[in-house]
Simulated assay, not measured.
Amino acid sequence: MKNILFFGDSLTAGYGLVASQAYPSLIQQRIDAKELSYKVINAGLSGDTSAGGVHRVERWLHDKIDIFVLALGANDGLRGIPARETSQNLQTIINKVRHKYPEAKIIISGMEIPDILPGRYAAEFRALFRELALKNNVSFIPFLLEGVVGMRHLNLPDGVHPNAEGQKLLANHTWAVLERVLE
């Protein structure tokens, strides 16, 4: 049995939903349906930032990790943390995973923030995920929340967190990339 670690924030944790509705659980259902020998581990923590992830990633690296899905950064964007700082933190997380498990395959989930924010921040924030994926030669999900953000019927009443139907789209975006990485 190989392990897939989903390391993220409330989007990964399935904020406001039962665990089985979070997209990592939906990915496990697809893996089981295909009778693949992978176990999904959901290390989503609501409110987490890339800086928080740097400090907590090592506690998740005790069990062998074969595939690491990095889905952090949304809260950095919401808080206006400089894109360079977010990028450095995510790179540190990647480095820690690679140091412990050099053979692990890594997938980065891209995040975006609305272009309504002034200046170049939204563009810099969007680009940092693609740049990290290219720099580290890892698989890339362009925008985890594509088709979900801003869609009232796919989000909880807070308008920020995907509901069960929205989580299905997150699973689809992730599966499109993950399926190619599975052996």
Rank of each mutant, 00 (worst) to 15 (best):
A127P: 04
F68L: 02
A171K: 05
L134H: 11
H153T: 03
R130I: 07
L61M: 03
G73F: 08
N95V: 06
L70M: 00
N95W: 07
P162V: 07
H55S: 15
N42V: 07
A22S: 14
G73R: 09
K135H: 08
P114Y: 10
R130G: 05
V138Y: 01
N137V: 09
R84P: 00
W60G: 01
L169I: 15
L156P: 00
F125Y: 15
K96M: 03
F129M: 08
I31G: 09
I116Y: 10
E124Q: 15
L170N: 02
I41W: 05
G8W: 08
I108F: 10
F140D: 04
V177Y: 09
M111L: 15
S25G: 06
R98V: 06
I107M: 12
K39M: 12
E103T: 14
M151A: 06
D66I: 04
R98N: 11
Y121S: 07
A74M: 09
G14V: 13
Y121W: 08
I41G: 04
G80D: 11
E183I: 11
I106N: 00
A122M: 04
L61V: 00
G14R: 10
P24C: 03
W175Y: 06
P118R: 07
V97R: 00
G166T: 07
K39Q: 14
V97H: 00
R56K: 12
Q21R: 11
L145I: 09
P118F: 03
R30N: 12
L61G: 01
P114V: 07
Q88T: 15
Q91D: 14
A13S: 12
H153I: 01
L78Q: 13
S87G: 14
L182N: 05
V18A: 12
Y15W: 10
L144G: 08
H153W: 00
K64Q: 15
A33V: 05
G47C: 09
L134T: 14
S87R: 15
Y23P: 11
T49V: 07
P118H: 04
T49E: 12
G150T: 07
E165V: 09
L132A: 02
G16D: 05
K96W: 00
I67P: 00
K34H: 01
A33R: 10
G53F: 13
S46W: 11
Q28T: 12
D66Y: 02
E183Y: 06
E165K: 12
K168C: 07
V149R: 14
H161C: 04
P162S: 05
I94V: 13
Y23M: 10
E112G: 10
D158E: 02
P142H: 04
V149N: 13
D63R: 04
G44H: 10
L178T: 02
N75Q: 11
R98K: 14
P114W: 06
T12W: 05
W175K: 02
E112T: 15
Y23S: 09
R79T: 05
G159N: 07
D63M: 01
L178N: 02
L132W: 03
N172S: 12
K2G: 01
V177D: 08
Y38L: 05
I108K: 03
L72P: 06
R152E: 14
V57H: 04
P114H: 09
G159R: 06
I106V: 10
L70T: 00
L169C: 06
T49I: 11
I27H: 01
G16P: 01
A123P: 01
F143S: 12
K2L: 09
W60T: 03
Y121P: 07
I41P: 04
R130S: 12
V97M: 03
H62A: 11
N95S: 13
